[in-house]
Write a protein that binds this DNA or RNA. Structure first.
Lengths: 151, 151
DNA sequence: ATTGAAACTGACATATG
DNA sequence: CATATGTCAGTTTCAAT
C-alpha cells in the first residue's frame, strides 16, 4: 500500500506528537480539521496506523535492566500462540519471530537483575517454550524512532 | 510505596492506547481523571514519559524489512567507537552492547531485502567490525512503549 | 459551517500520612 | 505540614448534522 505525500506528513506530525489536535495538524499540512480526521480514520482502517502509544524512558521509570531473550519453541507453536503468551507480561517491550536458530526474540525491561531473572524464569516456563538464551544489555548506544530508552 | 505501582499501570494503559481519555484510564486504575492527568504531567516533567507517538505499519511507510545484526568487534573497540560508527546509519533504529558471544546487537529497518543487505555489508565493513551474524524478523508480535518502527 | 457532546485544564476544598 | 485526591466550573476540542 502506498501513502501519498499528505498522508505521510500527517503521520509524521503524529509521530512527533500524537496528542496534537487535528486543527493544529491541519494548519501545518493545509487542511481543515475534519479533513485531517477523515484521513487519519482512513489510515487506521487501512492498517497504516495501528494505534497510538507513549514514548517512555525506562530508566526514569525504574526499568534499569534490559535484555533480549531468544526463545526456542516447540515445533507446533504458532506466532499467535507466542504473541498471546507474551502480551501478558508488561516487561515485554517487543517480540518478533525471526529467522535463524531461535524462533523469536523478546526485548525485556526489568527493574533490576532479580526482576529480570524472575521474568526470564516465567517466560521459560511457558508451555510452548522449549529453551531460552538470553543476553543482557550493557550500554544502550543508539535509540531512535522511539525505540524506548533514555533520550 | 505503591504510588509507583499506580504510575506503572497508567503508563501501561497509555502504552496500549495513548489516546484513551484520562477518565477512562482513571476508571481502570481507580483514580479520577484530574488525578491521572497530574501524574502524567509529573511523569513528563521527570522525563519518564518523553512524548506520545503513533504506531505505524512499517510496510505502509515503505520499511518492509526488519532485522537484528549481532556485531563481533575487534578486541580494543570501545562502546563509544561503536556508537559513533552506527549513528550515521538512518536505518539503525537501536543498538546496544550486550553480554554473551556478540559485542553488540543492532536493530535495522530497511525498505527491502536488497536495502537490508546493502546496510549489512556496509556495517560489516566498518573498521571495528570483525564479523556479523544477522537474523531477519518474520512477524512482529508485540510492540509496546514506542519500540517501533521508523516514522 | 454550526451545534451538541465530551474532554481537558485550572482552582478550590478536603482527607491522609 | 506536605502531598495527593476529588469535585466543580470555564474553555477547548471533537463529531455529526
Amino acid at each position: 500500500m502506498r501513502l501519498n505525500q499528505l498522508d505521510e506528513r500527517i503521520v509524521h506530525a503524529l509521530a512527533e506528537d500524537a496528542r496534537r489536535s487535528y486543527a493544529d495538524i491541519g494548519a501545518e499540512v493545509g487542511l481543515s480539521a475534519p479533513a485531517v480526521k477523515r484521513r487519519v480514520d482512513r489510515l487506521r482502517e487501512q492498517g497504516a496506523i495501528t494505534g497510538f502509544t507513549v514514548r517512555v524512558d525506562p530508566a526514569a521509570l525504574g526499568w534499569e535492566t534490559e535484555g533480549f531473550i531468544e526463545m526456542y519453541c516447540r515445533s507446533n507453536t504458532s506466532p499467535e500462540d507466542i504473541r498471546r503468551g507474551l502480551e501478558r507480561y508488561p516487561e515485554v517491550a517487543s517480540a518478533s519471530t525471526v529467522t535463524g536458530d531461535a524462533d523469536a526474540i523478546v526485548q525485556v525491561f526489568a527493574s533490576d537483575m532479580r526482576h529480570f531473572e524472575r521474568v526470564l524464569e516465567r517466560i521459560a516456563g511457558e508451555p510452548f517454550v522449549e529453551r531460552t538464551r538470553s543476553v543482557l544489555v550493557l550500554s544502550p548506544l543508539v535509540r531512535r524512532y522511539g525505540s524506548g530508552s533514555p533520550a
